[in-house]
Design a protein around this nucleic acid. Structure first.
Lengths: 201, 201
DNA sequence: TCCGGCTTGTTGCTTAATCTACAAAGGTTT
DNA sequence: AAACCTTTGTAGATTAAGCAACAAGCCGGA
């Protein structure tokens, strides 16, 4: 499956993706026609149908790729006890944990899409899916590190932290992303790791 | 010949053109390899050879297209006596003749290429060719309007005006194009039409 | 309601771009 | 010189993108 994509396919899909995101900033997704999209990105309309069934199919594929990239990002960083302990009591002022930094950089790079997903008419299902993927991962991590075996506490803590994190991101996006990813990552690390103290004996 | 080019061809050539101009800002043309160009613009190297023999061939094609566009531009505007007379004595302060405006807009749109062509290692042959094309056209125009039949005077005047015009352009390019095309067109029209007074009885 | 115009999927066919591989030519380093 | 590495130009086979044309569906105005 992961056969390297043909250069033409890659470029075509990239163009369509960018074009759709551009159009989505101007109008609702249901107002966007295949015709105008293909004309905008200068690609034959028939070529569109070689890859996607309709606009929604294209949109879903963007979401899917984003989801997979988020998964890969989360999977890439697994914390151990030492780092947690150290960071909790001596939070880094300048150099946040790479995971947090990467998350905010990701938000910058996928700004248009994130603005939409988190907006009024966004896809809350998608957000749920992402948070749920993180849930299993981080609850397991916390269990290992803190030897907490109270499922309700773990679940509740994750619910709190995840929701708080999303709120932080929403605030940032809504206010024009004035802070740099670095600044945001430092803040996020602070507030999240602070919540971890709950698990300490 | 003027069969509409295939979308793929158009995009490929466009990418290669832009890529070459980009590379030419960094290094000499003889240091640029086909490999790095095709990698830069993300096109298969073999595709390059479908259209061009080598880097110089590509460059020539850019020059050629530019030359043809210049020709079309010059051909598009033919002045008559009334306009000349009116403009000479009441030069427009804000709205210059469309030809002049178009020339400076053209320079903006083809900035990189023009900076190169008019630079130290530029193509003075190309400049000569353009000026020579204008020569026949404008000398004829002037003859018609002013009934001057002194070939030496016409040639000399053209030599003066053309060289002056090029100097004006060089000055503008070399100084960062701070003036708008409109401003430059007004200035160009003034100094050029002023020279035309030479032909008046 | 019907019409006219536009968008939509879809198709057959054409053609350009891709990929891979190769030998040859330059240019560098040892 | 020899070994090495990179670029070059070319070729054959493959595949994606293009084009044109069509019926079908949608929609707004006459």
């Amino acid at each position: 499956m992961a056969q390297k994509e043909d250069r033409r396919v890659r470029k075509t899909k990239e163009a369509l993706r960018n074009g759709l995101l551009q159009l989505m900033q101007e109008k609702q997704i249901n107002e966007i026609t295949v015709k105008e999209l293909t004309e905008l990105v200068d690609i034959n309309r028939a070529t569109f149908y070689n890859h996607y069934h309709d606009i929604y199919d294209l949109f879903s594929s963007i979401e899917k790729e984003m989801y997979e990239e988020i998964q890969r990002t989360l999977d890439r960083y697994t914390l151990n006890k030492e780092v947690y302990q150290k960071r909790i009591h001596f939070p880094a002022e300048q150099s946040p944990l790479p995971l947090f930094l990467e998350i905010f950089n990701f938000l910058v790079e996928n700004m248009e899409m994130c603005l939409f997903l988190l907006g009024d008419k966004g896809d809350s299902e998608f957000i749920e899916k992402v948070l749920n993927y993180g849930k299993h991962k981080y609850i397991k991590e916390w269990q290992k590190i803190y030897h907490v075996d109270n499922p309700e506490l773990l679940d509740a803590t994750y619910a709190f932290v995840a929701s708080g994190f999303m709120g932080l991101i929403r605030y940032w996006l809504a206010n024009g992303m004035k802070q740099s990813p670095q600044e945001m990552a430092v803040i996020a690390e602070k507030v999240i790791l602070f919540s971890m103290k709950m698990f300490e004996k």
